[in-house]
Amino acid sequence: MKILVCISKAPDTTSKIAFSEENTKFDENGVQFIVNPYDEWYALVRALEIKEAGGGQVTIITVGGASDDAIIRKALAIGADEAVRIDAEAKDAYFTAIQISSYAKENHYDLILTGKETINYNGSQVGGMIAAELDVPFVSLASKLEVNGSTLTVEREIVGGLQVVELNAPAVISCAKGMAEQRIPNMRGIMAARTKPLNVVDAIEIENLTEFVSYSLPNAKSAVKMIDPENMDELVELLHNEAKVI
């Protein structure tokens, strides 16, 4: 099975969030970037497991600048066969998705996996957009994926529960917790990653459907009110009369 895994860079989860250029740009100063956890832990590892069980090829793709090569090498070290970087700043989810679909149209994949969402923009958009552009089915928030020939059996989260569905490849699936276990790259993988192919592809021209015009940090919380652990009646009274939440 030929699998394309979409990976995105994301600031390390402990990064300090700040903005520059009059609050219009994320300030990358001192920020450590990682592979977006959903893409790495779930989408990529499940793709590798499917390949290990049934053969095939795993290609990772990212839309981003040359500074993304570090996270691409990390994903190669975990075990992907080759990488593609579409050389453009990922302006919005639509831009990203159309770039990836245009590459996928030419190279024909049986399965395209994305993460559930990126932890920086949290849009949960790119996967569904790729599916719509390719006119193939989309299964979101998959927690299990089994492949049998070209039949895909997927467990997904739906509002208020879980659902098992069946469909035929090609398809796009967004991956959430449960799909696979995190893999730590070993020394051999890291060495091998250095020589695996990383193809840099020019971006195509696409209009911007949306844009972030500015960012802000939430207002600081007022100081916490401490309550005597012996006096839970006081807490209940405050939650009712002051906070008005019960």
């Binding site: 639509y94 159309i98 569904g128 957009m129 979101s140 928030l141 739906i158 949306t210 015009v213």
Partner: peptide, 30 residues
């Protein structure tokens, strides 16, 4: 919710309509 998250992006591409994902406010004056 999980439903909107799966359908809205597909509709965005089909209609070439920009998607605001996870809105928490009404549109401002701009």
């Amino acid at each position: 919710d999980l439903f909107g998250k799966s359908v809205a992006p597909m509709l965005s591409v089909r209609l070439r309509a920009g998607l605001v994902s996870g809105a928490i406010s009404l549109p401002d004056a701009d």
